[in-house]
Computed example of a mutant assay.
Amino acid sequence: MDEADAGARLDAWLAGAVADLSRSRAKALIVSGMVSVGGATIEEPKRPVKPGETVIVTVPPPEPAIPAGEAIALDIVYQDDDLIVIDKPPGMVVHPGAGNHSGTLVNALIRHCGDSLSGIGGVARPGIVHRLDKDTSGLLVVAKNDRTHQGLAAQFADHGREGPLERAYMALCWGVPERTKGIIDAAIGRSNQNREKMEIKRTGGRHAITHFAVAERYGAAGKPPIASLIECRLETGRTHQIRVHLASIAHPVIGDRGYGAGFATKAARLPEPARSVVSAFPRQALHAFRLGFEHPATHEALHFERPPPADMIALTDALKSL
């Protein structure tokens, strides 16, 4: 490092010293711990450089802009030249993102569908019209071309208020709502304490409405039910909407460690074998079991239903045994 460079910001100096490295990229590398000065990792972009210092920067290879296809098995419910309906298993991420660059539904779809996938959803989300949380199972429709993508996107934007879209979920929840049927109308926004979670907002937030109906109750005869099966229908599509709304009325989804962690002690008070099954359940017990929409090309009304996966069936059987 020359005397003329003394006092310059580290990010600015790197941008000038390394070919094809922008200042913003240099700053990101410093903050992520990829730069060392004199053998010590530096994470402060503003740090001034000094004459004689040795700076080492590790530039990771760029990640592909387009996800790679992977040979991942898919449970295909229906497909034609325009779209494909998948029953997504729990544990599968829908599209690549931070920390999930492979093993996603998009990776599987690219391998299965080839070049036919729509690009209107963006290179990282080709054909994706809607999504499910990683640990939520159930039905998803994916467009194979732009015309279908636009037609489906319009239906999902309406959420079935006036159009043909129909989506319903089954959730195994703690306790039983006082009303057999009801509507939860509460705005949802990003949590101020944990940016990875959502919360009910008294001011601000985005309008969110969930319709619910109690389908089954579980518990010992003569005692208040310990859990219930609740069917939910969305009138809006906010992140974590069902999970946040059910938790807001004190009936969180069983296994939901994000919004129902305070109810985990209830499992310890259950008799065996239900105690072991409920305590070990690794995800939120939420399944998108019904999906209906109008085919954008043929205008045919399509309707699909799928039972929950084996883990949720086992959980239901354990609750029924109480």
Rank of each mutant, 00 (worst) to 15 (best):
A124L: 15
M170W: 14
A171I: 04
G103R: 09
P164L: 11
D133V: 06
K134T: 14
L132K: 11
Y169M: 10
C173Y: 03
L152W: 05
P164H: 05
R131C: 04
L117G: 00
H112S: 04
R111W: 15
P96H: 05
L165V: 05
L140C: 06
G99T: 05
H101D: 04
S102E: 15
N145A: 07
G119P: 00
H130F: 02
L109H: 05
I120V: 14
L109G: 06
C173S: 13
G182A: 08
Q155F: 10
G119M: 01
N145E: 09
R125T: 00
L165C: 10
I128H: 10
D133Q: 12
V106C: 07
H95N: 09
G160M: 13
G99P: 01
G99V: 07
T180C: 03
T148S: 14
H130M: 06
F156T: 00
D146L: 03
W174I: 07
D146S: 13
R111C: 14
S102N: 13
N145K: 12
V123I: 08
H95L: 13
G121Y: 06
L132T: 03
S116Q: 15
R131G: 02
A98K: 12
F156M: 06
V129S: 12
N107D: 12
R131Y: 03
Q155A: 11
L109F: 12
S137H: 13
A108W: 03
V106S: 05
L172F: 15
P177R: 11
L117A: 03
R125Y: 03
P164D: 14
D115Y: 05
D133C: 07
G138S: 10
I183N: 02
T136R: 01
G175M: 06
I183E: 14
G163F: 05
G97V: 06
A98D: 07
N100Y: 06
D158S: 07
G127S: 12
L140T: 00
M170N: 05
M170E: 15
V106Y: 02
G182K: 06
C173R: 00
H95S: 09
W174S: 08
G138H: 06
A124H: 05
H149F: 15
G182E: 01
V106P: 02
P177E: 09
E162Y: 13
H101T: 09
L132W: 13
K134Y: 08
S118T: 03
